[in-house]
Structures are given as structure tokens and as C-alpha cells.
Amino acid sequence: MLRYLVRRVLIMVPTLFVTSALIFTVMSSAPTNYFDNLVQEMQAQGEKVDQARIDFMKHEYGFDKPPVERYFWWVGGLVRGDFGYSFEYQLPVRQVVGDRVWLTILLSFTTIVFTWLVAFPIGIYSATHQYSWGDYGLTTLGLMGLAIPHFLLALIFLYFSNQWFGLSIGGLMDPKYFDAPMSWGKFTSILSHLWIPVIIIGTAGTGSMIRSVRANLLEELHKQYVVTARSKGLSPWRVLFKYPFRMSLNFFISDIGSILPSVISGGELVAIVLSLQTTGPLLIRALQSQDIYLAGSFLMLLSTLTVIGVLVSDVALAFLDPRIRLLGGATK
């Protein structure tokens, strides 16, 4: 197992290297770059183009050097923890992303917890009461959640809260707290704004989670070992949680790999509609304006989290399921 762990961690290095090369290639293969766009935009607006400044910036960010050199410069920075400089904001990427990362993580974690809290009880109920009215009703509700697009739901919420309560539910806090330091008032303001995006982003996740919990549990419920457990005299609840539920968790753990990246990137469209101060809109804006260091560093962060997430879920699976741990490497 130790050898397996070391090998898996070592494999991460080339994986991330290849990913970074791909990201960089895609972004620098666009026919224009940020500076061309800037010049065009300024000319279009009739402003005078300060060519000397543009050249200075190009030189500063290595745009006069070949792409390969620029790539290693960028990657070298990443390794040292320097994420580069955002042209658009004229700030280091680290500062641009700064606060938003924490808000995003808060929002995403709350959403994930919300999803689990709602989906697990409903999924378990649906599986144990298969084909009952309750099962049909809850499954239909889950399907609706799955089928309605996030941003549409966000628009509907916006409209009705304004129409009925005269409330503006946009943002993650009252505008007056935007740049203020953390205080009790800011904290409560965040909490009172948080629940609406959580519900909106969470519905689809809940819908699909209900379906997977139900399907996985149903499959396990018909296994012979459940009958064995009942024949020992265990109560139905203890049978359910010790055996089939435990087994159905495997799918859930293997899902951790995709949860980690979504923690910092979940719900971009909703964030735009509700003007949330999360990282999602930032990434989209950066991609549009070819702010390549901001976008590139951000994408690298997502890939790193994905790779770590997959590793975490694999190790957790091996830890929880002795079959994976002991039978894994056997050649069939």
C-alpha cells in the first residue's frame, strides 16, 4: 500500500506537467493576445495608444520571448507559488482571486453539505420504499431539480423575490460590506444571502445524488448478505446502515474526485445571474479577455484539485474496502 501511495503521488507530477502544457498551448494558440485586444479596443474608443507602454508591458511579461520560454517562466512561478500577474486588473493574480476564493469555498461547501443532507435521507427512503407513492413523488421532485437549468431557477427566484417581497437577493452580502474587513455584521449578512444560491445551485446536485443513492442502495438491498444479517436478528435499521448502506458508499467516495474542483468553481452561470462575488465570473471574464495568467493559473488550480481529489478518493476507497486494498493488483 505504501508503495502504491508513493507511486500515485509521483504519477501526479507528470500528469500536472502535461495538463499545464495543454492549458498553456490552448491559451497561447489564439490568433490574438491580450495586448492586441487592448490596442484594438483603445483605437475603437478613439483613445491614443501609448505604444511605448504596450511594448514595455509586453517585455515585462515576456511576450517578446518565444512561447516555450514563456511557458517555463509561468510554470516556474507556479511551483514557487507565484501565480503571475493579471493584465486586466493590473494586480498579481493572487490578490485578484484573494477574497473570492474564500467566499467560493464557503458557498460550495455549504452547497455540498446541503446536497448531502437532503439527498441521503430522500435516497434511502426511496430505496427502502421502492415503488411506493413516496418514492415516486420524491423521485419526480429530484428529476425536476435535475431538469431545470440553474440560471433559469436563479432568474425565477430573482423575479419573484422582487415581485413579492421587494427584495434584491443578488450578491453574497450587503453591498456596504464589500471591501470591509470581517465583522459580525458582515458575517450575518453573508449568512442571510447565502441560502438562496445554495438552494439554487444545490437542486440539480440533489436531484442526481438522490438518483445515485437510490440506485446504488437498491442494488445492495437485494444481496444475500442482507438476508444473512436479518437472519441474525438485527433490526431493519441496523441491517441497513451496517451492510447495504456501507457498501453503497463506494460510489459516493469515488465521487470525491469531482467534488474538490467544484468547490472553487461551482455554479458560474448562477454566480453571474445573481452577481455573486465568487471566482466563477472571474474565470469567465479572464477567458474572454485572454488574461492568460489569471485564467491559466486558475485552470491549473482546478486541475491540481482534481488530481488530488482523485487520489484522495482512491486512497479512501482502498481504506474502506478491503477488496480493493487486497485484490487490487491481482492479475486476472
Binding site: 444475500q224 448478505y225 444473512t228 444479517a229 436478528g233 438485527l234 451496517k242 456501507r246 478491503p322
Partner: peptide
């Protein structure tokens, strides 16, 4: 019935692999 099962009445099944939980 639960008080009797496993205590006063025991049962074994045909397929010992699937009758035992693989993760315990």
C-alpha cells in the same frame, strides 16, 4: 421474531461468498 433469529434459530445459505459481507 428478532429475539429468536440468530439466537434460538440459526440459518446458513447456499452461497457462502455472497452470504457474508465482503467488507467486514
Amino acid at each position: 421474531i428478532r429475539a429468536l433469529r440468530g439466537s434460538r434459530m440459526g440459518m446458513i445459505f447456499q452461497e457462502p461468498m455472497s452470504s457474508l459481507s465482503p467488507v467486514h
